[in-house]
Amino acid sequence: MSMRGPALLVLLLTISGGALAADPSSPNAVERGEYLFNAAGCLGCHTDEKGGGKPLAGGRPLATPFGTFYPPNITPDPDHGIGRWSDADFIRALREGKGREGEPLYPAFPYTSYTRMTDRDLSDLKAYLFTREAVPTPNRPHELSPPFSWRFTLAGWQWLYLTEVGPRPDDPSKPPDWNRGRYLVEAVAHCGECHTPRTTLGGLDRDRYLAGNPKGPDGDKVPNITPHPKVGIGSWSPGDIALLLEIGLLPDGDVAGGAMAEVVRNSTSKLTAEDRAAIVAYLKSIPPLE
């Protein structure tokens, strides 16, 4: 990295230093949980912002090739939200894709990524969610056509696609920022859920990890973010990637739109500059794919 790197980091801290809401190194579970809540982008899918819904009360339509999903209410409301969920229930949902009654959950909820979050991060996330306002909004059923509407098929889906359960140990041969970056990209920020193409059954095509998805959420084309020099982001400098994550600006001066604009607004702009740099370090290291 040239001399620019450190200068840029300092600068990026200057741009957003005041806006940082939560602290990932806080000893307080709720504060750590708030940081993870932002990094995991829970707000976007679980809030029907355009329909005037209250935060986290669910209902934002999520159009996919399999039908329309309506993410549920995850406020602490005891009847319509997750107010009666124990820590174990919560961890099981995010790690194994199972509801409170043990029923398999639709993978529109990205548990194939969240499964890699640590116990501590998951329970801190829950601690933060439980400080939010309880909203008694009932859940809206998904609108899916068969066979996707048959929930029993999900067990088979999970057998096929939820093949690695639980957090991965750090790779000791790699520096800490790379390991942190991998954790953020793979687990918490679940980048692969949109940037990796899916099979006809809706599983992530892991051979094409982060190589872009022509049929992303809401019909958007989602770009290749592997370091391929032509079709990926191989020609981007580390500062280019960090700036995209912080303010949504692409190297050519375009500004990210669609779902990524929301991700930047709710999530990556609220990370620390160190975490954005860790994401950059990891993305620069993965195999370039066409």
């Binding site: 019909g219 084309k221 949504g248 500004v255 739109g257």
Partner: peptide, 24 residues
Amino acid sequence: IAQAMQVMSKACSNCHEDFRQKKP
């Protein structure tokens, strides 16, 4: 300038988020 750039970028993203769709 960096802060103004951030404000400008945000102003662009408002419209791009709601009203622009990248073509497949």
